[in-house]
Design a protein around this nucleic acid. Sequence first.
DNA 1: GGACAGTACATGCACGTGCATTCAATGCAA
DNA 2: TTGCATTGAATGCACGTGCATGTACTGTCC
Lengths: 143, 143
Amino acid sequence: MAELDSPAEAGLVAQWRELLARHASASCMLDRELGERYGLGMSEFEVLERLVEACQGGGDAVRVNELAPTVHLSQSALSRLIARLEKAGLVVRAMCESDRRGVQLTLTEAGRDRYVQARPLHREVLALTLGDGIDPARGASSD
Amino acid sequence: MAELDSPAEAGLVAQWRELLARHASASCMLDRELGERYGLGMSEFEVLERLVEACQGGGDAVRVNELAPTVHLSQSALSRLIARLEKAGLVVRAMCESDRRGVQLTLTEAGRDRYVQARPLHREVLALTLGDGIDPARGASSD
DNA sequence: GGACAGTACATGCACGTGCATTCAATGCAA
DNA sequence: TTGCATTGAATGCACGTGCATGTACTGTCC
């Protein structure tokens, strides 16, 4: 027969579906809301956030290759995303002095402002989509 | 300053990043592995699985509009996904008798076989990507 | 009966993504 | 120094997705 999962597998599948449901609802709502009100996609916001965090950490410029592993995007997707942010005037690309293959990113005033404005909405969406039905073990699956 | 999250918000963000990381690693690996070895995307597999489950439940045909809420896709994406599955000979589209607007999906032999073949790999990938670091409550945040 | 809103699905279109490739710069070895 | 593999990033291309729209059918109200 081989049609049935073992209990362990069934648990994994339930966990996976729960994760899929949460990811779908959260990312969908984030994209819609951030896009409508601030012209930002979910990943755009994520990148701005990493830049802000890096600035708080002291440095004011971030290497793209350091940013890559933290956002879950391919190198090409990240490259184009940064191009969009730059075109929108939210970041500035500059050649890295120490390694001229690299690119340093700097958050502009507009970029920081946009992030600060968008952040409350971002947190609100997370609270809405992650906060309700907190019980990863069950397949609550509203959707 | 308004630069800092409240503890509750920080927790949400940590939870969100954990979710993003798991989703990225799992879906990426699923797409790559299922695609390479069985010519299926993650969502294709998910749809086949729902069809198999429906067949086990008794009926042998599923309405598309019943399938829609369970997979997290737009109606148009689901329509095209089904078209791909049909072109691959894994499902058959038939007009629904009771409501001729609707479409009934039937799993073909090939479709069921493909699912049965792909399922172990699917479970294996889930075990690899969801199994390590099991503790959704904490922001373990490797990556 | 006919008109009209609502539903189920398909399709045109724009866009973001990943893969493969390309180009520039670096590091290392001869 | 020259030559070559490697790394960082940009780009061509194919493809999957969502939004808006179109088409076919249903149900209701007149």
